[in-house]
Amino acid sequence: MPDAVDPSDEGIMEPLRFPDPGVESLQASVRRLMAESQQQARLLDSLSSRPEDTTFAYDGFAPGPPSPRGSRPEPRFILTLDGTAFEAELDALSDWVTDFLLPTYGAEVSTAAPWCLQWTEHLDVVGWLHGLWLAYQQHIDPEAGPSGPAVWHRDFLTHTMAAVRAPGGPLSACMTSPDRPSHRILPSPHGSADAVPGSVSSKAAA
Rank of each mutant, 00 (worst) to 15 (best):
M1K: 11
D3I: 14
A4N: 13
V5D: 06
V5G: 06
P7L: 09
P7Y: 06
P7N: 08
D9Q: 12
G11H: 01
E14I: 12
P19L: 12
V23L: 13
L26V: 14
L26W: 08
R31L: 14
M34T: 09
S37M: 15
Q38C: 11
Q38T: 15
Q38S: 15
L43N: 14
R50Q: 04
T55N: 03
D59E: 15
P63M: 06
G64K: 13
S67D: 00
S71W: 11
E74D: 10
R76S: 07
R76M: 07
I78Y: 08
I78M: 06
L79P: 05
L79N: 03
D82T: 06
T84E: 04
T84M: 00
E87D: 13
A88Q: 02
E89N: 13
L90M: 07
A92V: 10
F100M: 11
Y105A: 14
A107M: 04
E108K: 13
A112M: 06
P114Q: 00
P114M: 02
T120D: 04
E121N: 10
H122P: 01
L129Y: 08
G131V: 01
G131N: 03
A150V: 07
F156Q: 00
T158A: 14
T158S: 12
A166H: 07
P167G: 05
P167I: 05
G168E: 10
G169Q: 06
G169E: 00
C174V: 08
D179G: 07
S182E: 07
L186Y: 01
G191I: 04
V200S: 02
K203P: 01
A205W: 00
